[in-house]
C-alpha cells in the first residue's frame, strides 16, 4: 500500500468508504441511490469527527445532515416522482470537461496546500469538542453571529414557504394540465 501502509486501518477504511460513497453519489443514475449514498458518506464523515475529538459535531452532523436535510431531499425526490432512472445523462464530452475542470482544481488546491507550509501545534486538551465547551464559546464569543443565524433561518423559512406556496393562477394552470 505504499504511503498508506503506516496509517491506522480505521482511518483508511473510513476514508475509503467516504470517497466511495461520494463517487456513488455523483455517478449513480438513480437519484434515490444517490441520496442513500450521500447519507452513508455523512455517516463516515461523522466518524471522522469522532476521530478528530469533535464528538458533539459528529452527533449534530448525523442529526442535521443525515437526518433532517437528507430526509428533506428524499422527500422532495419522492414528491416529484423522480425515484426512477429517468435522468438524462450528459454526453461523454461533458464528463471529460467536468473531470478536467474538477481535476484541475484538485491539482491546484493540493499544490496550494503543499506550498502553504502548515505549522502543526497539536493540543492535548481533552473535551474541546464537548457540548460544554462549545456552548460556552457559542454563547460568549460567537453570540452575535449566533443571533444572526437565527434571523437567517427565519428568513430562509419564510422564503421557502413563499416559494413553495401555490398561488391561484398556478392551481388553475395545473388543473388545466
Amino acid at each position: 500500500m505504499g504511503v498508506f501502509s503506516n496509517l491506522p486501518l480505521p482511518f483508511l477504511i473510513l476514508s475509503f468508504l467516504t470517497i466511495l460513497g461520494a463517487l456513488y453519489v455523483v455517478t449513480s443514475k438513480n437519484p434515490v441511490h444517490s441520496v442513500l449514498a450521500l447519507i452513508l458518506t455523512f455517516f463516515t464523515i461523522s466518524a471522522h469527527y469522532v476521530l478528530l475529538n469533535a464528538q458533539f459535531l459528529a452527533i449534530v452532523n448525523l442529526m442535521v445532515y443525515a437526518g433532517a436535510i437528507m430526509v428533506l431531499f428524499l422527500f422532495v425526490l419522492m414528491l416529484l416522482n423522480l425515484n426512477k432512472e429517468s435522468e438524462p445523462i450528459k454526453s461523454n464530452l461533458w464528463g471529460i470537461a467536468a473531470a478536467i475542470s474538477a481535476g484541475l482544481l484538485l491539482v491546484v488546491i493540493t499544490a496550494a496546500f503543499q506550498t502553504a507550509g502548515i505549522a502543526v501545534m497539536k493540543s492535548n486538551a481533552e473535551g474541546i469538542g464537548l457540548v460544554k465547551n462549545l456552548g460556552r464559546v457559542l454563547m460568549t464569543e460567537y453570540l452575535v453571529p449566533f443571533e444572526l443565524t437565527g434571523i437567517l433561518f427565519v428568513s430562509a423559512m419564510v422564503g421557502a414557504v413563499l416559494l413553495g406556496k401555490r398561488d391561484k393562477n398556478d392551481i388553475v394552470k395545473s388543473e388545466e394540465i
Binding site: 467536468a98 475542470s101 482544481l105 491546484v108
Partner: peptide
C-alpha cells in the same frame, strides 16, 4: 464550468 476554470486559473496564477 467557466467559473471553476477561472477559479483554477486564478489560484494557479497566484501560486
Amino acid at each position: 464550468i467557466y467559473m471553476v476554470g477561472a477559479i483554477a486559473l486564478l489560484l494557479g496564477l497566484n501560486l
